[in-house]
């Protein structure tokens, strides 16, 4: 069998691209959660700052992956159709507004006035959601890869991004001392929703005739993903409710495990499950007799 006669793993995007999806999903949703927390009176600037750092590290990693990194400015040339261009365009005001809101909240900017970071924070959160959406569309436009182009992959990776961000939010809440029972319930809802979408995604992928090797890669990570990213967080949240004295520790661990599960998903999706289907021959050539056998 020659090249193309069997499905093959794409090698164009590696762990660095996975890091962009990890940093982008975790960071952008962290900004969203930080903004919602701001209106609940929770600390904003340390959380938002870390969110921005996640996004920046993700973009830096994908920059390292490009073949011609010093041509990075060319990235902005096709906003009409390219979701990668749009991602880059959204990132600029996201960092600007995110930085302004962080500086205002940290009293670095306008320290003598009682300015609220609410307006730039809300705008940054909206841009963060747009950034996350751009990443989902980038994934979806990989037409050669059934595991990525399946529409439910967008829902799964998007929801996972929100879960990862909230997991880090819980961890920071434990460190900074602002964990509330409602936050634990929110994490539980997110991980349960992600598990449901995961099942729907796998079922749809199976129906779409995705390469067996892609299904095998996803199947191999299923237990790790479901146990680390879902079962453990749920158990830890129950433990947090059962032992109020340890609630902060358990909720932090729940956040970390929920986040790690999402990161595992993205690493496997990008580096292990991204199989290009084999070349299809619907009609083999007829040589010498007037019938065509089954295609490949």
């Amino acid at each position: 069998m020659s090249w193309g006669a069997t499905s093959r793993l794409q090698r164009f995007w590696d762990i660095r691209a996975a890091c962009n999806f990890i940093g982008g999903g975790t960071g952008s949703s962290l900004l969203v959660w930080a903004t919602l927390g701001l209106f609940a009176g929770l600390p904003y600037f340390p959380v938002a700052l870390i969110g921005l750092l996640f996004v920046a590290v993700g973009l830096f990693m994908v920059w390292l992956e490009t073949g011609k990194p010093w041509r990075a400015l060319y990235l902005f040339f096709r906003p009409q159709t390219s979701w990668m261009t749009r991602e880059g365009i959204v990132a600029l005001p996201l960092f600007a507004l995110g930085a302004v809101s962080v500086f205002i909240d940290a009293d670095v900017l306008l320290p003598t006035t009682s300015s609220s970071p609410a307006v730039p924070a809300v705008l940054a959160a909206i841009l963060a959601l747009a950034f996350l959406y751009c990443q989902l569309r980038i994934l979806n436009s990989a037409r050669s890869l059934p595991a990525w182009r399946e529409p439910r992959a967008m829902a799964l990776v998007g929801l996972s991004g929100l879960t990862e961000g909230f997991g880090i939010y819980l961890l920071l809440g434990a460190i900074l001392g602002f964990v509330a029972p409602a936050m634990m319930v929110t994490l539980m809802v997110l991980v349960i929703a992600r598990a449901v979408v995961w099942r729907a995604y796998i079922a749809a992928l199976g129906r779409s005739g995705a390469p067996e090797s892609a299904m095998s890669a996803l199947s191999a990570m299923r237990n790790g993903f479901l146990i680390t990213g879902h079962a453990l967080p749920v158990v830890l949240i129950f433990l947090a409710y059962s032992w109020p004295g340890m609630a902060t520790t358990f909720s932090a661990l729940a956040g970390v495990t929920a986040t790690l599960g999402g990161w595992l998903l993205k690493i496997v999706l990008v580096t292990k499950a991204a199989y290009i289907p084999k070349t299809a021959i619907p009609k083999p050539p007829v040589r010498g007799r007037r019938s065509s056998s089954a295609g490949a």
Partner: peptide, 19 residues
Amino acid sequence: VCIGCASCAVACPYGARYI
């Protein structure tokens, strides 16, 4: 002009692009 981002390579259903 190409920056070698490989978006096209993963988008091509025919695996016709190389980097």
